[in-house]
Design a protein around this nucleic acid. Sequence first.
DNA 1: AAGAACAGCAACCGCTGTCAG
DNA 2: TCTGACAGCGGTTGCTGTTCT
Length: 271
Amino acid sequence: MGRSPCCEKAHTNKGAWTKEEDDRLISYIRSHGEGSWRSLPKAAGLLRCGKSCRLRWINYLRPDLKRGNFTEEEDELVIKLHSLLGNKWSLIAARLPGRTDNEIKNYWNTHIRRKLMSRGIDPATHRPLNDAENRVQDHEVKASVAATNTISFASSASAAAVVVKQEQDPSITSKSSMFGVVDGKGTLLERCPDLNLELTISPPRLNEPEQPFKNMDRSIFFGYNLGMQNSNDSSDIGNSTSSGKRNSTSTGYDFLGLKTGVWDYRRLKMK
DNA sequence: AAGAACAGCAACCGCTGTCAG
DNA sequence: TCTGACAGCGGTTGCTGTTCT
């Protein structure tokens, strides 16, 4: 796309923040609140880009930040969430109070990645390293997703099961996905034992009379009902950051910032 | 003791999504 | 409907401290 720079680089400081800059930013936000990042630097008397101010505040100065090492529970939660969401650091961060997306991203790249490798798990796929069979399963799932119009994430008290309904291709017998793996007999090879998921995918119903999302393009829609044991958080995915701007394509969320509802697939895309 | 290599993390950059005019 | 402005996200960079040789 390409946009003009958010501020005049010639007149802005870069690099590490000084104590004085921190103090200015903190005191300005305390008295005026967050937001309007573009105009904030000038108003606060800072020679910084608005983006830089926002980042500094969110990642370092915010009073509700939890500093220090990650606990073992946080480690495992990050791993599970990453297996579900991929590199959606902001979504993952929304489930870990006091942690920022940047912090989690850094922690993932420096600690967890290595930890998973030492366990013989590919941090990108969350599957055993050098597992040739996985590649076959990947292929099958791609084929099945392309061929079917519904995927159900069967709810279970103990496991996140993924069952691909073979509505259009009954010949497909073995499935896997980022959420879990189901073998040819329908047995779940457990991946996220404390997550409950129900998720269906269906194409846009363009021919039906009521088309609440008729303005959207032909992306895949997720109808979902996701839940997490011990989770009482009702944060909104669109409010995973302070502005809450990004919620206009959904109808509600709960778990992982997801409530029961319909969601534009593009918001869930994995890289 | 000194330099090299590595690890950790704060900050930057480029891009996308959303909103308002 | 289009377009520009803005907020936010994720990947990457580069600085600093630590460990190794």
